[in-house]
Amino acid sequence: MSNERTILVCAKETPDTYSDLSFSGGDVQFSNPRPVLNAYDASALEEALVLSEAHGFRVHVVMIGPERAAETLRKALAMGADEATLLTGAPEGADSAVIATILSSFVQQFGPDAVIMGRQSQDTDVGLAGTMLAEHLGWPWTTNAIGIRVEENMFWVKRQGDSAQESISSPMPCLITCSNNLNDPRIPTLKGIMASKKKPMHIMGIDQLPGGESLISTPPSTVVDSLTPMPARSKGQVVEGDLETLVDALVKGLAAIPETGVDA
């Protein structure tokens, strides 16, 4: 191991939730069958790469998934990450708590200077794994980052809070979760794709991690029992016509809501 400082990006592959969705036998299928790199994690990776360019961090991406996920992970290398690890053999139905426990074992063994990850995944929108991991590690965390810089050996994170932006400084090591409003993740270039084929990708069973046996045998504490289509909103009336018609329809619509204070 060199003395180079490392940012570990924890990423996940998800279905392409922005493609069309259909149900079959209680399961959800998307029109694009290819999994994608979770958009929030892509923002995390982009930010790690920008910090790497400015400060010389080594960027390592870790993903929990089946062997097939190596393809998605390869995209992260093509974007510019230096190295990647795929952790295979996660227990069936692993929830945020199980994922955070597995990642915690990996992070402790790996010893990065910072963990940067998406604030949630675009499929489940749960958003718990980040701070669970930070708590397991006993590290300071900052969530929902919309800006990250490194100064005086500290991470300075601008986080979007409920009614203000908070600027928080943390010493290393620390954990940061990213909004996808932080940046626009780069598209891999042809050169990046070629280079990615030579970059190290480690595939490792979760059972090989410290505490591995219990990591793969602990059942998840939350279970997704069923998925059902959301009751769709029905399409209402669509009004076209001259300005007077449109304004009349609007005034009527607004007057139907007492809170607007518009009289019928």
Binding site: S96, A97, A100, R119, D125, V126, G127, L128, A129, G130, T131, M132, L133, A134, E135, H136, W141, T143, N144, R159, Q160, G161, D162, S221, T222
Partner: peptide, 23 residues
């Protein structure tokens, strides 16, 4: 389900050793 809650809910669950369901 504010940003304040999202900032702590996972950590709270991990601290208390309790399951969490968000949102």
């Amino acid at each position: 389900n504010t940003e304040l809650t999202k900032d702590i809910l996972g950590a709270c669950g991990a601290r208390l050793g309790a399951p969490v369901i968000a949102d």
